[in-house]
């Protein structure tokens, strides 16, 4: 599903990623591991084409970084659910509106949006809080809203960049369980983390990074 070939991103200050060649498979749950600053987030940004490679290429399904247009990047992002450590919710919108955003921007009908968002909010256990402003929620709740927003558009891939980084262990566990459940339903998940306790009992594929490169262990 995702092919990285000699993928290099050079920020000019020594940071970035270097010569990454690997593949990510459809339906897999892949863990991207490594210390802070090792390039996990950069690799994820390349996956949703927020940054284009300086050298090498990445291809995701039919989209290839060497010939992708701005319009195609939007299409790609509409097929990917992105979850960030800092949630990135729109704080002046309520829970429902935040989750509905991807559907609103792609022009779904009011009825379809209400039906889909209600189901998703129920799945993440936030149906009761739909009226609350995103800014008033706890960290765990915010992350569950972010997950709901990521899956509401039925993406083929979830990119979760340190989704438990700002959460207490209990909330982190809830979020990880949700991601496992999403993956079990067939959606590919790539999760960057350095929370080794959280993932110690899982047998998901692990990719290690250090200083911008993949590490063979």
């Amino acid at each position: 599903m995702i092919t990285c070939s000699k993928l290099t991103v050079n920020f000019g200050n020594g940071e970035g990623i270097r010569n990454i060649t690997t593949q990510f498979y459809e339906g897999d749950f892949t863990l991207l591991l490594g210390p802070t600053g090792c390039g996990k987030s950069t690799l994820m940004r390349v996956m949703y084409m927020d940054i284009l490679p300086s050298k090498g290429y990445i291809s995701i399904r039919n989209w290839d970084s060497r010939k992708i247009s701005k319009r195609q990047i939007l299409k790609l992002r509409q097929g990917i659910g992105i979850i960030f450590q800092d949630f990135r919710l729109i704080e002046n919108l309520n829970v429902f509106e935040n989750v509905a955003l991807p559907l609103i921007m792609t022009g779904h009908s009011r009825k379809a949006i209400h039906e889909r968002v209600s189901v998703i909010l129920d799945e993440v256990g936030l149906l009761e809080t739909w009226r609350q402003k995103a800014g008033s929620l706890s960290g765990g709740e915010k992350q569950r809203v972010a997950i709901a927003r990521a899956i509401v558009k039925k993406p083929f891939l979830i990119l979760a960049d340190e989704p438990t980084g700002n959460l207490d262990p209990e909330a982190a566990n809830t979020v990880f369980e949700l991601l496992k459940k999403i993956n079990a339903l067939g959606t590919s998940v790539i999760m960057a983390t350095h929370n080794y306790t959280l993932i110690e009992d899982t047998d998901y594929r692990r990719i290690y990074m250090e200083n911008g490169s993949l590490v063979d262990l």
């Binding site: 939007l74 992002r77 509409q78 992105i82 991807p102 921007m105 927003r149």
Partner: peptide, 16 residues
């Protein structure tokens, strides 16, 4: 600006 960046990351078109 943060809201705009979020919308861009979600795949919102420029006109939206």
């Amino acid at each position: 600006r943060k809201q705009i960046a979020i919308l861009q990351q979600l795949g919102a078109g420029g006109l939206f």
